[in-house]
Amino acid sequence: MENSYVHIYTGNGKGKTTASLGLSVRAALAGKKVFFGQFIKGMDYSELRIPNYIPNIEIHQFGRDCFIYNDPTDEDIKEARKGLNICKEVLKSGKYDLVVLDELNIALYYKLFTVDEAIEIIKNRKSSVEVVITGRYAPKELTELADLVTEMKEIKHYYTKGIMARKGIEF
């Protein structure tokens, strides 16, 4: 790509990962190569099947089979740091046109690695690589670095009525 930018999708509303998946599909259908790295996540999300249909999208998870609800464990930290190192190499390689760092903000919120480490890998990427960062609680330092920041704001959500996550919609 001629110019590459850093996008952030943050906020307490639904749709951050979904928006980044939509952009990934759009990029792939335009002939771009996409790397989609999911921090924190290790469960069987429906999007993991995308590469079966669109081969120029790769999806990798850097989490365990559960989301962090309390203090992160040593295993949570180990998986996140492993993912950060993989993403560092992916960003520098130039092999991909678009790199999504899904739930990176949550990994930072739980202090699985530092904001400075995240900023370093983004700044040191190959200049042609577009980057999308998702997750609630985007730190100020990242929003200042970004070229585009979208905040998803929850106005109303059916989970407040006890509706649980549904396969194909929320996961």
Results as ranks from 00 to 15, higher is better:
residue 114 T to V: 09
residue 85 N to Y: 05
residue 88 K to T: 15
residue 106 I to L: 11
residue 66 C to G: 02
residue 97 D to E: 14
residue 119 I to V: 05
residue 39 F to N: 08
residue 124 N to T: 03
residue 98 L to Q: 00
residue 61 Q to Y: 12
residue 154 E to W: 09
residue 51 P to D: 15
residue 101 L to Y: 02
residue 53 Y to D: 11
residue 83 G to F: 02
residue 137 Y to Q: 12
residue 96 Y to F: 15
residue 38 Q to C: 15
residue 64 R to S: 13
residue 40 I to Q: 04
residue 93 S to H: 13
residue 142 L to N: 01
residue 109 Y to T: 07
residue 87 C to K: 03
residue 90 V to P: 00
residue 105 N to T: 02
residue 90 V to D: 04
residue 142 L to G: 02
residue 125 R to A: 12
residue 100 V to P: 07
residue 68 I to W: 07
residue 51 P to F: 13
residue 54 I to F: 13
residue 103 E to P: 01
residue 130 E to M: 06
residue 146 A to K: 11
residue 115 V to L: 14
residue 131 V to N: 02
residue 35 F to V: 13
residue 51 P to Y: 06
residue 46 S to Q: 01
residue 139 P to K: 09
residue 143 T to C: 01
residue 44 D to F: 12
residue 152 M to E: 04
residue 149 V to Y: 05
residue 39 F to D: 14
residue 49 R to N: 14
residue 73 T to H: 09
residue 119 I to S: 01
residue 112 L to H: 07
residue 115 V to S: 07
residue 105 N to G: 02
residue 46 S to N: 12
residue 32 K to Y: 05
residue 39 F to M: 03
residue 59 I to N: 02
residue 113 F to M: 00
residue 153 K to Q: 14
residue 139 P to H: 11
residue 70 N to F: 06
residue 135 G to M: 11
residue 82 K to S: 12
residue 100 V to S: 04
residue 101 L to T: 01
residue 151 E to S: 04
residue 146 A to V: 10
residue 52 N to A: 14
residue 151 E to V: 02
residue 85 N to I: 11
residue 88 K to D: 15
residue 122 I to T: 06
residue 53 Y to P: 11
residue 144 E to T: 10
residue 33 K to P: 05
residue 121 I to W: 09
residue 36 F to P: 03
residue 51 P to W: 14
residue 125 R to D: 07
residue 129 V to F: 06
residue 111 K to W: 08
residue 52 N to K: 13
residue 131 V to R: 07
residue 74 D to Q: 13
residue 95 K to F: 11
residue 140 K to E: 15
residue 79 E to S: 12
residue 149 V to Q: 07
residue 68 I to E: 01
residue 148 L to K: 08
residue 130 E to Q: 00
residue 50 I to D: 07
residue 40 I to R: 09
residue 38 Q to V: 13
residue 33 K to V: 08
residue 75 E to N: 08
residue 53 Y to S: 15
residue 151 E to K: 12
residue 49 R to V: 10
residue 148 L to A: 05
residue 71 D to K: 14
residue 137 Y to C: 10
